[in-house]
């Protein structure tokens, strides 16, 4: 008779290992969060690892800003990539878990309003006009360009925008309609901005919005619409206009939230220092807009002094100037 060599033995092996949990290697910097911030963090991680010759390891996930914060207050990760400031509910969870965080703005993202290059009559758009197009009441009513501004042709208006789960959607609706997540629903929505790029590039009557990096990578196929800022100037999005604050209110800072306790580990401390030192160049390389140079210096000071808390108090705000991010008092409890 044959000896028994039954495969289920294999099934027992991993189960037995549950008991022999090896202490997890701690020399890894764990980062998760926004897909908007991801390209910059990936670039920094890549450079950091090659600079330190693999002595320190970095892993980066993309579960979205909200998903990232969830892991952050559970203590699963060291750094959270965020495309918006921390919310009141997330601040409370951090407080409950005893997690202190340092808020570091690291670059700008500019929401860009796009039309097809064949569209010759749109020269600029005001916030009021954008609101007329995108507010919930416009659903099914504002369907032609002629309804947006007198004198524009009676051509159909087809809309493309961010899906309801993205930070881009939250920010755009907050800045334009005045209330986060308040938007009409009858438009082509996608979480994948490339779908929107293709939609507008192939639709003469299209209008849509998405992150600046996607416009920068597809300049030939799209036309960016200058937006009238609160001072009354029509400003197209560009590296300069975003950096000097003229492109408002559709430009926003994006952040890193660093767990203060994790900074006791040298690899995390070194990584964040590296991020602030090289973030500007690397952001530019992946088509994002860096902050003014002194903002990184102020970030380094904040890191060195271990100043914890947020400058926002848990409430979304739009059209903020970079200096305000550093001049405000920091809070760890929501206002």
């Amino acid at each position: 008779m044959k000896t028994i060599r039954f495969r289920p033995m294999w099934g027992v092996a991993p189960a037995a290992l549950l008991l022999a949990v090896a202490a997890q290697a701690q020399s890894i910097v764990r980062i998760d969060g926004s897909s908007t911030v991801f390209p910059i963090t990936e670039a920094v991680a890549e450079e950091f690892q090659s600079e330190t010759r693999g002595a320190f390891k970095v892993v980066v996930g993309v579960s979205g800003t909200g998903g990232g914060f969830k892991k952050f207050y559970r203590g699963d990760i060291d750094i959270c990539d965020a495309s918006r400031p921390i919310l009141a509910s997330e601040m409370q969870e951090c407080q409950k878990a005893g997690i202190e965080y340092i808020e570091l703005p690291i670059a700008f993202d500019a929401l860009t309003v796009m039309v097809n290059p064949a569209n010759k009559f749109v020269d600029k758009l005001t916030i009021a006009e954008l609101k007329k197009i995108w507010e919930p009441e416009a659903q099914g009513k504002i369907t032609h360009w002629s309804q947006v501004r007198e004198g524009w042709p009676h051509e159909p208006l087809k809309l493309y925008g961010a899906g309801a789960d993205s930070g881009t959607f939250d920010y755009f609706t907050e800045a334009i309609v005045g209330k986060a997540k308040a938007s009409r629903g009858d438009y082509t929505a996608s979480e994948d901005d490339n779908t929107l790029v293709q939609g507008i590039a192939g639709d003469k009557s299209g209008l849509g919005y998405f992150g600046y990096a996607y416009y920068a990578a597809n300049r030939g196929k799209l036309k960016a619409v200058p937006i009238v800022n609160p001072k009354g100037e029509a400003v197209p999005p560009s590296l300069e206009t975003v950096m000097n604050g003229q492109y408002a209110p559709l430009s926003r800072p994006i952040f890193l939230y660093v767990n203060r306790k994790s900074l006791e580990r040298p690899e995390v401390q070194k990584f964040v220092e590296f991020y602030l030192a090289h973030g500007a160049d690397l952001a530019r390389e992946v088509k994002y807009i860096p902050l003014p140079a002194d903002a990184y210096k102020k970030g380094q000071e904040r890191l060195a002094a271990r100043q914890v808390g947020t400058a926002f108090g848990g409430h979304p705000e739009t059209g903020l100037h970079v200096d305000e991010l550093f001049n405000r008092p920091l809070a760890t409890a929501p206002r």
Partner: peptide, 29 residues
């Protein structure tokens, strides 16, 4: 919680020293 960027490999499952096999890779990101 899968990652999107990982710039290193999990620990190798085989070793040169006894016991030659190693299950640390199971715990890797």
């Amino acid at each position: 919680g899968a990652m999107a960027y990982i710039g290193f490999l999990p620990p190798s499952p085989v070793h040169q020293q006894p016991p030659y096999v190693n299950f640390e890779w199971l715990w890797s990101n």
